Amino acid sequence: MTATPLPGATRPTSGSATRSTARAGAVRTYLRLELRRMLRDRRTLLFSLLVPPALFLWVGASADNQATEIGPGTNLRASLLVSIALFGALLTAASGGAGVAVERAQGWTRQLRLTPLEPWTYVLVKVLASMAVGAVSVLVTFAAGWFGGAQMPTSAWVLCALIAWCGSFVFAAFGLLMGYVLPTESVLKLLNLILAALSFAGGLFLPFNDGTPMAAVSRLMPTYGLAELARAPLGSGSFEIVAVVNVVAWAAIFFAGAAWRFRKDTARV
């Protein structure tokens, strides 16, 4: 004879459900901690909120940039604005991810291995926190562009900002990977140099003419696809399949590399 549960009684929670709840709680807690850590980092806030808009106002201040049209209702300042905002988002996301170098030195990543967090969730939390600060960077830079004379259609303002922000997730994973492979004491300096080199080589600031050797090389850079997609709403770029493949391929490489290094780094726990 089967016993009937009493009204209001609850069924025992399965082990898998308990583990899932524990993981979800650990992810939420760690995300809050990561956001607080990044907001307390003055260096990150400086490069996120001050450097990109200041760079735009300095580079784009020329009257020629405002007068030169590159499309209907779009001037050259708008193209410069999108490039600089994307660079600021990439720098912010990568710097946030590279903070893992300090955590490794402090033994924090080994402690995380004792929690319900899995390697992919650790990488995801780092990426989400970096992108949250990157969103602020893009908004502040675009605000400077609005007051600094950049002109483009309303739809382009929205689309360019979204693409620049969403694309930064690729370099959040890149920053994580660099945080594992670069020396702790010089990770940020080296990261800034690498990002600057990749940005120029990928045609982020100055696209290369088609048919030139550098144009072919730039298509292999992880910044190429993002630059093309971010400028597409202005009419100076396009949603070519090669740009999409570039973004997807490099995102997969960086995410896989970051997860692999995290698992290897904490394997002794």
Rank of each mutant, 00 (worst) to 15 (best):
S238I: 05
V244A: 15
V181S: 03
L198Y: 06
M131P: 00
E240T: 15
A67G: 07
A17T: 13
G134M: 01
G211L: 03
V125E: 00
R268Y: 14
K126D: 08
A256E: 05
A105G: 15
S79A: 15
L112M: 10
F171H: 01
S238K: 08
P233Y: 01
L90Y: 10
V82R: 07
F239C: 11
A249Q: 08
Q66Y: 09
V102H: 13
T154C: 02
R11F: 10
A172W: 01
G175N: 04
L80Q: 14
T44M: 15
S79N: 13
V181R: 05
G25I: 01
M131H: 02
K264A: 10
R43D: 12
F169K: 01
A230G: 04
L114R: 12
F255D: 06
L159S: 14
M214C: 00
A251D: 09
F239Q: 04
T2W: 10
A129Y: 07
G202K: 02
R261N: 10
R11Q: 14
S62P: 07
G148S: 04
G237M: 11
N246S: 11
L90E: 06
G88L: 08
L49N: 10
L188F: 14
S155I: 05
R42S: 13
R42M: 08
A243H: 12
A172R: 00
L50Y: 11
T115Q: 05
R32D: 11
T154S: 12
V82W: 04
F47C: 07
M1D: 13
S137C: 12
S62V: 06
G148L: 02
G179Y: 06
A89F: 06
F205P: 06
P153D: 04
A98M: 12
V138D: 00
W58S: 15
C160W: 01
L76D: 11
V100L: 10
P183E: 02
L204W: 08
N209P: 02
R77V: 03
W58E: 05
L139N: 09
G99A: 11
L188M: 13
T10I: 09
F147T: 14
N209E: 13
A22N: 12
R219F: 02
T121H: 14
F239T: 11
K264W: 12
A256T: 13
A230H: 07
F56Q: 02
S95R: 11
T212R: 03
A61E: 12
P5L: 06
S199Y: 06
A251E: 07
L57I: 05
V187T: 12
G15E: 15
W120T: 00
A61T: 10
V133I: 07
S20T: 14
M38V: 01
R263P: 05
R11L: 15
S218G: 05
A63N: 12
F208H: 07
R104E: 12
R219M: 02
S16A: 15
A156W: 01
V140W: 06
N75M: 04
L50P: 11
A258N: 07
A54E: 09
L6D: 13
D265K: 03
D64T: 13
S168W: 01
L176G: 08
R261T: 12
L159T: 11
G148A: 04
F169N: 05
